[in-house]
Write a protein that binds this DNA or RNA. Structure first.
Lengths: 361, 361
DNA sequence: CTGAAAGCGCTTACAG
DNA sequence: CTGAAAGCGCTTACAG
């Protein structure tokens, strides 16, 4: 029913191979022959059957993207950009959600997703480098996204977690904050985004001569509700603090929501900072100070790296590691200068018993 | 290199067809034969080549999803759910972004997306029913999402736009609001989400005996920044209002951000309501009153309808139309009772000159 | 520069 | 219940 290459060949009076040559931009074709073929294609409305091409050539021009949950704003924004960047090189992106479970991450690596695609952009959250190396079958390219893995065996595109968290912490310290709670990590975390960002926090504290207090490090699921309940626990525990650093924006926004609900003023009683600079951060009330981790650069570099591996133009023997540049976005939730925000009031540490809220958005 | 059906057939001592029969759950196979085949599959680690299956059978077990922009929270949350629902029926979802341009919507309908998938979930924003009917090639099933199209030729899954907007407006009126600004529509809008939601708003006003004032209807791009700038124009125009109904949550959240920035108290000076109930709405400050449009139901019904069309179990001659049930989510930005919020202050209409902001989150 | 043939790995009539 | 053969629509060596 659909028009095939055979129909085109017949209409143009050439062989199948010649049509294929034209479609694949083979260079040594007589202009007249090429034109005959192009005319026939246009006249018949021929479109190549991608499935047949894929079966024969072994290439699908699809990239797989594995994230835990596409409804997480950071992943949604990343996926959207990845699709746009990939489309510019004539690739599609096929997304798979892992729900951050071991079984699903293994399936993503071994199952039909990798069969359907030419390579994978993988954000592992539970599998470690050895598990991934062991699970991997075949030789299709694999680029790691995020910071859970840091291993010379793998190509990897990340953000400057340590440096960015350090810069943000330094910003809060410069604003006069001394008891900065961290939401989304455990004191002992070493690897992955939580551990790296916590390390940056500690470096900044050390340079400023501020003691590290493990009581200020509050574990939480990296979602808005996780941030909210972490702050609730912090306030209920009576631990004084004058700033909250959510290790991603969802945590920070959830934290800010709970603070305001409890009557803690932001930024007067407690500054709030996040990490990711999702679109929502600009429009929260107060707007959220956060780290812009260079998402555009991440999207471009990882698609480019993966396609270069697929097409063989990137030949490095060991893993290529790319780190995107970050920027701080200073907004109302944690302004540069604490004093200028509060000409008359002065500062008081936040607590569960803070008075009626008053917010400067 | 990969294990093929032929290898399995040889190992099991049966023909290719028998292996195929086992894989496709053909019922009349001797248990012993089936077991031999299953053993061989397990031993060799055979996995069916989906591309070959797709080429031969003409079915890919992929659904196409066309939205304007996957980074829009509503679409991200919808896509995430669609994937989960589809996966339960052993289908994948391939997403394409149209950027709400005519050219891209046509491409999505005619191009390689429809070739790669067994059917399309399509959210048209610029194409109308006739254009879609004309552009459509072949006979692959197509289910419309959203309200831009309402045409008996097409299957369609929508929300109760009119009823939900009417209920929300009635809620605002019941709270004592009389000058309710609408963000995201033009006074003349008739069709699509803006027109339908505006119609619900007008019905509620009429039933309450409140006059419709076109000066309160403010057009805007359906994004956070659109909501913010629409409110800025409204305030700058000096038009008094005591509530803002953003026709989606992004608009409402952007509007709320701008109100608070200008010192307009929410909900004291102006209540704010939205539409969609994205996750963010629960965690804004104040939390956002909005319409939950039944996204789970929408996701389930549209995937089910599309797959039933693909597999032939849905045989209706004309378009099947499904409307999901909605619920109001009453939160702090527009509580049920205005007076209880303000025991001592009373009400004053918002204006650009409103005094220093004070927010009850 | 172009053609005739083989084959990617399945499913699908068609026999038996 | 199972087998041998054809064919989905391409690309890829191999000739010439």
């Amino acid at each position: 029913m659909a028009v095939t290459m055979n129909d085109v060949a017949r209409a143009a009076g050439v062989s199948l191979k010649t049509v294929s040559n034209v479609l694949n931009n083979y260079e040594f074709i007589k202009p007249a022959t090429r034109q005959k073929v192009l005319d026939a294609i246009a006249e018949l409305g021929y479109e190549a059957n991608l499935t047949a091409r894929s079966l024969r050539s072994g290439k699908s021009r699809m990239l797989g993207l594995v994230v835990s949950d596409l409804s997480v704003p950071y992943y949604a924004e990343l996926a959207s950009r990845l699709m746009t960047v990939a489309a510019a090189r004539d690739y599609r992106v096929l997304v798979e959600q892992s729900a951050a479970t071991r079984a699903n991450e293994l399936t993503a690596l071994q199952g039909s997703l990798s069969q359907l695609t030419d390579g994978l952009l993988f954000t592992p959250l539970v599998l470690d480098a050895d598990a991934i190396a062991a699970a991997r079958r075949g030789t299709k390219p694999l680029v790691m996204l995020g910071e859970h893995i840091d291993d010379p065996r793998f190509d990897q595109v990340t953000m400057k977690n340590v440096g960015a968290a350090k810069a943000m912490t330094a910003h809060l310290l410069a604003g006069g904050r001394r008891r900065i709670a961290v939401i989304g990590a455990s004191p002992g975390d070493g690897a992955g985004s939580p551990g790296l960002r916590l390390a940056g926090y500690r470096e900044a504290l050390a340079e400023a001569g501020v003691a590290f207090d493990p009581a200020l490090i509050v574990p939480a699921e990296w979602r808005r509700d996780g941030g909210a309940s972490a702050v609730a626990r912090l306030l209920d525990g009576g631990q004084p603090f004058d700033a909250v650093f959510g290790l991603n924006d969802a945590l920070a926004l959830g934290a800010m929501h709970e603070l305001l609900l409890r009557g803690v003023r932001v930024p007067e009683d407690a500054a709030v900072a996040g990490f990711d600079d999702i679109d929502e951060a600009r429009f929260s009330s107060p707007s959220l100070t956060t780290v812009a981790p260079g998402m555009n650069e991440i999207a471009e570099r990882c698609v480019q790296l993966l396609i270069d591996r697929i097409e063989g133009s990137e030949k490095a023997d060991s893993g290529v590691h790319v780190e995107a540049q970050f920027e701080l976005r200073i907004r109302a939730s944690a302004p540069a200068d604490r004093v200028s925000q509060l000409p008359q009031t002065g500062t008081s540490p936040a607590s569960a018993s803070a008075a009626e809220g008053k917010v400067d958005p």
